[in-house]
Design a protein around this nucleic acid. Structure first.
Lengths: 345, 345
DNA sequence: ATGAAAGCGCTAACAC
DNA sequence: GTGTTAGCGCTTTCAT
């Protein structure tokens, strides 16, 4: 009899060495009652000594969980690393998941197809027990399938009304507060440069801005309104340039998307506008570097880390078959005032 | 007979519908020869129509690969998001892996224990077919086990001489070039503020700096040498402050770790030193925001995206049982000159 | 070219 | 308290 080369040690080996059945070992491993204290101890010792780790695939196949959660977030190529939002969120999620010995299967999606293939491979292939997904990511079809299947997932950012379980920051409140701040400083012609129109969150930020403007009696107008722009494109820069060349130029610009800040700065530089004297500039989504900018950027700071933690908490509840309470979490933002918004005028 | 609720469709279902055996379906799925053209076609159609996706756990268990690779990188909590290095690298890796339908299992390690548990769970549990690991991450023990087992893994950053397969940027060359640049501008008292002494990469950056200094005949001295600092600690700030208070204060500071840049800026601000007039400041590792700093930072730019791609290429070769050629890749850096280094003096 | 059957390593009834 | 055993869904010889 030739002993086959064993690539790694299995539950069977432990069982043999402990002179028990594999069932008993399994029970011990999973803290299932029905094993004598002595036996349990003996097995644990063996597991420890041999540094045994059960085969994950076998475990999942045998009906238990995969101990993986999937995270599908937008593709954050170097071009959009101007915001630390996703990295921080991802770190937070990973950290929280690790505390429960759950791994994170990452999928960054650049296109619809990517999302689709990620979806197929990760979800349909049963690689994960739950999913955290960026609100920008899913088409209605996939969403419907997820909901229909009752698959545990939570969305980061409020996507659609269909979604029960989500976490988000208070986009409306943040934008409202920041706009009020500008109004309080004496600004009237305040323009918001927001992200893509159909994006979740964007609408809310615009709404917050609008609410504050309305309350101050500042009717919408060419220099009183929100403009949408795809992130960091030439078109965005053009639109902005045009806006800043109006004879009644806005006195304040609220950049409501992290990756548009650099676009805005370049554009104002081109037009030789000084910040904040010629134009007050504020942003949604803070960044540790803003403090060091030539005109330190005043920004709405989002509790990104907390957002990640909350997402995982919600997801774990769902995975445990509990109804999370509450079913969603909207976290408050905070305004960080630096000098780019200038002082009262 | 009550039909059990089927959670998802299996290879068996396909086989039944196609009136063939599961073996034939499996062969078709895996493009294994030995299936008639007609049969193959019929099966493919069924797979397509039913949107069938094989169960990943079953596949791995049955001896095939997991189609997952693991990535173990340092914990990048919000505090250290001052550098976009890891996020960009991770994105690049994920992107490249996705092109081969390989998922990324992420593990951010904060401590030795984290690494250990990540290692156990991911690797020993056979969750991945290969591993990409940050050079800072592994202790010799795990390293030895990996090498000994012949497990496919590549390191990002040159860790130890034991590592055959790694990718890295040319730390020495980058630091050397930047130091020369400073010397060329007329600086003599140039100090390097580097990361933790034992860190891979750090030593090389110091070596590059030293080489340039030596060649210029600038012997080591209190204001001619490299200082090490844990990232972004109070101690680092203190050391720096002390240094900048010397009567023969350095005229140039080379911050050789991304997350020390803000520390340096805060410290110089505290001492009311103007950059670049009082002190030239340059950094290793560029960031898109540097351009907008009050003194736009001159920096050594690393080809991070390429680094990620290279890492995955190497890893895939190993996973395919091929010897990658070459076995390691050291990518050149590029100096981006902005104004923080000032002009010739 | 196709199928039967033996696992892969584990869990979960169920029996003792 | 412990062992037996039947799968989980797939791949892979080995017959046919």
């Amino acid at each position: 009899m030739i002993e086959e080369r064993r690539t790694s040690i299995t539950i069977k080996d432990i069982a043999a060495l402990a002179r028990v059945s594999t069932a008993t070992v399994s029970k011990t491993l999973n803290d299932v009652p029905g094993v004598g204290a002595e036996t349990r101890k003996r097995i644990r010792k063996l597991v420890e000594d041999l540094d045994f780790q059960p085969n994950a695939s076998a475990q999942s196949l045998a009906g238990r969980r995969t101990d993986n959660i999937g995270v599908i977030i937008p593709h954050t190529g170097s071009y959009s690393m101007a915001t630390a939002y996703w990295p921080i969120l991802l770190t937070s999620i990973t950290e929280k998941a690790a505390a429960r010995n759950v791994n994170v299967v990452l999928s960054t999606a650049r296109s619809e197809e990517d999302v689709d293939s990620a979806y197929r491979s990760i979800l349909r292939g049963k690689r994960v027990d739950g999913l955290i997904v960026g609100a920008e990511q899913f088409g209605t079809r996939q969403l419907a399938e997820l909901v229909f299947k009752g698959f545990p997932f939570v969305m980061v950012g409020k996507g659609s009304l269909l979604i029960r379980y989500y976490v988000d920051v208070d986009n409306t409140g943040g934008a409202d507060a920041m706009t009020r701040h500008l109004i309080g400083l004496g600004h009237r012609r305040i323009v918001m440069l927001a992200g893509p129109e159909h994006y979740p969150g964007v609408t809310e930020r615009v709404a917050g801005y609008r609410a504050a403007m309305d309350e101050a009696g500042l009717e919408p107008g060419v220099d009183h309104c929100a403009y949408h722009a795809e992130a960091a494109t030439e078109a965005a820069a053009e639109k902005l340039k045009q806006l800043l060349r109006l004879r009644a130029r806005p006195t304040a610009l609220f950049v409501a998307a992290g990756d548009l800040v650099t676009t805005a700065l370049r554009t104002t530089a081109e037009l030789a506008l000084r910040i904040p004297s010629d134009l007050a500039l504020v942003a949604f989504d803070d960044h540790p570097f803003y403090e060091h900018f030539s005109s330190p950027i005043t920004a709405v700071s989002q509790p990104i880390h907390d957002l990640g933690q909350a997402a995982v908490e919600l997801l774990f509840a769902l995975m445990d078959g509990r109804e999370p309470e509450p079913t969603s979490r909207v976290l408050p933002t905070r305004i960080v005032i630096r000098s780019s918004c200038g002082s009262a005028r």
